[in-house]
Write a protein that binds this DNA or RNA. Structure first.
Lengths: 182, 182
DNA sequence: ACCACCATGTAACAGGTTACATGATTAA
DNA sequence: TTAATCATGTAACCTGTTACATGGTGGT
């Protein structure tokens, strides 16, 4: 007992299901609405996983017949589902440093036209700034409501700020070298 | 022309191959030695990808017969390989915010014993600190040698610092709420 | 006697993506 | 009339992991 393993996606779905019966459609919207901040699977994946959860006994489903719109499957977490989710939550999370394509491009920067590299870095900065802005302007209510949500938002902010700092200094250095060489 | 696509792993291998003919074994060691900082595939993946690169015309291979140790395949990047790598490097990298399991566990924090959650956060901080230390103490020569390597190292540092800041404040808040409720 | 290094690979599995297919209802 | 919302799924593909298999050489 206790050896049952679930994936992060399984856990995310089960986690959302603790808040009530939902359809795959609902779950996908919830995932997106959180800005896909820490979880964002393709919808086909959601529709693939849900029946698996049922097959493994972690959820039950019932069909709701609707008129005027497509029928839907509603999923409900089971006791076994809660138990296995609990186990997953208690497992120490794996820590690993970022592995972004930008870093790879930078690492092989000697092979690349410096101006293009600078473009890449600039773009990353502007995207980080956009993320920061969107996190800053999002619902103060939602953040006040739950400390946990607030902490995840602040993680995003901290990360965005770090990216902004780093991209700024990287851009400076790259342009400095560029103009020095001309 | 120009529509050929390669993956990040393909690009990483081709990138290393621009530095000279290497075996899969060599390439794996190089990947590991960079601390797996921005790229770290399983060795089975490397051995799977290399023949694919040859099949697609991006590299050539020759067998080196050795006595006293296993024979090896040496791979060499081709002109087509250089071209396709170039294209990949020039493509603007996809930007996406971190998607770490820790965030998911935090987000569903209401379902979890607060003390376990604090343990998770603490562990993340100590791992970030370890990363920071290892980046700070690693080769000053290697960093001086290449600005690009230096920039990737500094990215790691910036990221580690952000994680440390965030985990520290998260831990404080979580413990504060914990003691307040007792 | 044992372990690390050299060197390549196979097999089984897990987890994920994009594109395609369907089709009624409702708001702009 | 055009697009978004509701709602589910299949097919083809890609990327990646862990565990297993083999076997000589050289150092402690």
């Amino acid at each position: 007992m206790g050896a049952a393993k679930i994936s992060a996606t399984d856990a995310a779905l089960l986690g959302l299901l603790t808040r009530g019966e939902s359809s795959g459609y609902d779950l996908q919207r919830e995932a997106e609405s959180s800005g896909g901040l820490f979880w964002a699977p393709a919808k086909s994946r959601i529709y693939a996983v849900l029946p698996q959860l049922v097959a493994r006994g972690y959820a039950t489903s019932r069909e709701v017949i609707q008129t005027g719109r497509p029928n839907k499957q509603l999923y409900k977490i089971s006791k076994a589902g809660r138990a296995v989710l609990q186990e997953w939550l208690e497992e120490p999370p794996v820590f690993e440093p970022e592995r972004a394509p930008l870093l790879l491009k930078l690492y092989f920067g000697d092979l690349l036209d410096p101006e293009i590299l600078i473009e890449h870095v600039r773009r990353a900065r502007s995207e980080a700034q956009a993320l920061k802005r969107s996190l800053e302007t999002t619902p103060a209510e939602a953040r006040a409501e739950s400390m946990h949500v607030d902490l995840t938002v602040r993680h995003g902010l901290e990360w965005a700020r770090a990216m902004i700092r780093w991209t700024s200094s990287a851009e400076q250095e790259l342009t400095a070298r560029l103009t020095a060489q001309v």
